[in-house]
């Protein structure tokens, strides 16, 4: 699968602040790459470098093998984008905002405006000035501007912002369809792992300007931490019993005992027998799986960074 997006150790420093530090990315054709990070992690700065809006302090970004530069005009025919909150010209209607993009993108068929209005369900608001749109509809208009020319690549910065749950599902399905059926390469940023993991094929986690980890979404589950949680009527007695049996058990708040051990997680019945035989039978026993947000916070926490 040829790389459509490549960055070669790109960094960006703003007045002494290192917003992005030596990030190298490779995104293949038809791939949905989720770029995950907290606010201020460097997602938008990276996206702006991919779009040639800012110059890297060092390193280079390439799209389809061409340097991401404003001078490569033809390159931008292949790319649709949405950066941060998608503001539009407030005095112009939805239709006029799109007509403007149609002309600037030299799309000869004027029907594409109506078509994208229908696709993004903006028909009801087509003749309404953009200033009167709700945040969700402003986001839809932003997506319409990104999609109007049927691009081969989409670079989207938090496109789900402001959308209601139905809108989020709708956009997710649309992006999944574009990637699967039309081979559109999608680079999408988000700060919600739970959302992005539902449709991204690969996820890169960025924190404090550094790319900490890349993981294929289908392997994400194997990276989740699992542990056995239990409770007995006499936890201070149960913990030494477990420790002596070779299970690292620790007390948690709320009269709980946690065992971070793969053998215990795989065979909780053995733990139950052990405790029953020791005279402190469990009153509760369950396998607890780390959720996606906890995983994300653990990854960025283990980098030595702090949550912002």
């Amino acid at each position: 699968m040829p790389d459509c997006i490549t960055t070669d150790r790109i960094s960006k420093t703003f007045g002494g602040v290192r917003a992005v530090r030596e990030i190298s990315l490779h995104v293949g054709e038809g791939e949905i790459y989720g770029f995950l990070g907290l606010n201020g992690a460097g997602k938008t700065t990276t996206i702006r470098m991919l779009l040639g809006m800012i110059r890297p302090t060092s390193g280079e970004a390439y799209l389809y093998g061409q340097k991401a530069s404003p001078k490569n005009h033809d390159l931008w025919n292949r790319v649709g984008y949405l950066v941060e909150i998608p503001y539009s010209y407030p005095d112009l209607t939805v239709r006029e905002n799109l007509e403007m993009i149609r002309r600037l993108r030299s799309i000869s068929d004027p029907r594409c405006v109506d078509s994208i209005i229908e696709r993004l369900r903006l028909g009801e608001y087509a003749d309404r000035p953009a200033r009167n749109l709700s945040l969700g509809n402003a986001q839809r208009l932003g997506l319409a501007k990104a999609l109007i020319h049927n691009p081969e690549m989409l670079i989207l910065d938090e496109p789900a912002n402001g959308l209601d749950p139905e809108g989020i599902v709708e956009v997710r399905e649309m992006l999944r369809e574009l990637a699967a059926e039309k081979g559109v390469t999608i680079f999408i940023s988000s700060h919600i792992l739970g959302e992005i993991s539902k449709f991204a094929s690969r996820i890169g986690i960025i924190h404090e300007g550094r790319l900490l980890r890349e993981v294929d979404t289908d392997k994400l589950e194997s990276q989740m931490r699992r542990r056995l949680l239990l409770s007995t009527r006499d936890n201070p007695k149960a913990i030494p019993v477990l420790n002596r049996a070779g299970f690292a058990a620790s007390a948690l708040e709320g009269d709980l005992v946690a065992i971070d051990d793969g053998k215990a997680v795989m065979n909780p019945e053995n733990i139950a027998s052990l405790l029953v035989n020791a005279g402190c039978p469990p009153v509760m026993l369950r396998v607890d799986e780390e959720d996606l947000e906890s995983y994300f916070l653990r990854v960025i926490g283990s980098s030595g960074g702090t949550r912002q």
Binding site: G52, P70, Y87
Partner: peptide, 15 residues
């Protein structure tokens, strides 16, 4: 001021 500049920056139109 209207934060619309980014719509004009990555287009097949020279700035």
């Amino acid at each position: 001021s209207d934060r619309v500049i980014k719509d004009l920056l990555a287009l097949p139109v020279p700035r």
